[in-house]
């Protein structure tokens, strides 16, 4: 599943259209989704972003979410004079301005995107130092919360410069303007998403959800103890790693019902021996 967070609706519209997302929730956050994507509109600020991140990621299966990734997408200000409005960046460092905590995506792929660093602050109206190249109000908290669900190569921040924040004039941006700058970059965002999806799909853990379900089933059926179940899991992984396939012969043990613990232990030893041989 691809999880996307934007702060504002105009930042999301381009993706909603591109991926034909349907609105599935209005409260507490607007959520749009398809079979493979969930997009949440958090509202402005770190607290909103943290809450919305937690809200959409809570249905990610934490033990088997290796194909999932999270993207905080939206607009930001630039604190660097060399950068211009409309340019899009993949953020390779996210600094929380208030706590000074830093977050880093593991960028393992060649993307067709320039990279910059970003600082997330509580209020744009306050006096603040220019510590990084870009500034926004959500990335750090979205990153922090998504880190509880996903690994560092599954969390990204992509931002489009919408204003020259170093001038500190805090102009209000029109909805139309945001739609336009997102629209100009939409192909690159799609390319970024596609590449990441493809990569994560190609990375498969040895022990998958279906393996875990099978072990569970077999353990119940043979009435295995907790320790035997753990040993079975290890032996199952050994077999799979060694032979490159699942031990299909185990299926025939599903219909066996041991009469007592002695019989169970004997069957268990037999299974282990087969898996390790």
């Amino acid at each position: 599943m691809i999880y996307i967070l934007t702060a504002l609706r105009p930042e999301a519209d381009g993706l909603i259209k591109q991926y034909q997302l349907k609105k599935v929730k209005d409260k507490p956050f607007e959520v749009f989704s398809s079979e493979k994507m969930k997009l949440v509109v958090s509202g402005v600020g770190k607290i909103n972003a943290a809450a919305a991140t937690s809200y959409i990621l809570s249905d990610s299966d934490i033990n088997y979410n290796h194909e999932d990734f999270f993207l905080n997408f939206g607009i930001c200000g630039t604190l660097k004079k060399e950068l211009t409005v409309g340019e899009m960046f993949l953020c390779n460092k996210v600094l929380d301005y208030e706590t000074k905590e830093c977050f880093f995506s593991d960028i393992l792929l060649e993307y067709d995107l320039e990279e910059e660093t970003i600082q997330s602050i509580d209020h744009l109206h306050q006096k603040f130092d220019f510590l990084e190249a870009l500034v926004d109000m959500e990335a750090s908290s979205a990153f922090k919360i998504s880190s509880k669900f996903l690994n560092t190569h599954q969390i990204y921040v992509v931002k489009i410069v919408s204003d020259l924040a170093y001038k500190k004039n805090n102009e209000k941006l029109s909805k139309q303007f945001v739609l336009e700058i997102v629209d100009k970059n939409i192909n690159k965002v799609v390319d970024f998403i596609d590449k990441t999806v493809l990569f994560l799909k190609s990375y498969q853990m040895l022990f998958q959800k279906r393996d875990s379900e099978f072990i569970e089933m077999l353990s119940i059926s043979l009435n295995l103890t907790f320790s035997q179940k753990e040993q079975l899991k290890n032996a199952y992984c050994f077999y799979k790693a060694n032979k490159g396939c699942e031990p299909s012969f185990l299926e025939e043990f599903l219909i066996i019902k041991p009469k007592n613990s002695k019989e169970r232990n004997a069957i268990f030893d037999q299974i282990k021996q087969k898996l390790y041989s």
């Binding site: 853990m205 040993q231 290890n234 032996a235 992984c237 050994f238 790693a241």
Partner: peptide
Amino acid sequence: DSSVVFFP
């Protein structure tokens, strides 16, 4: 995903 890690 290596068998060396899962040896008993």
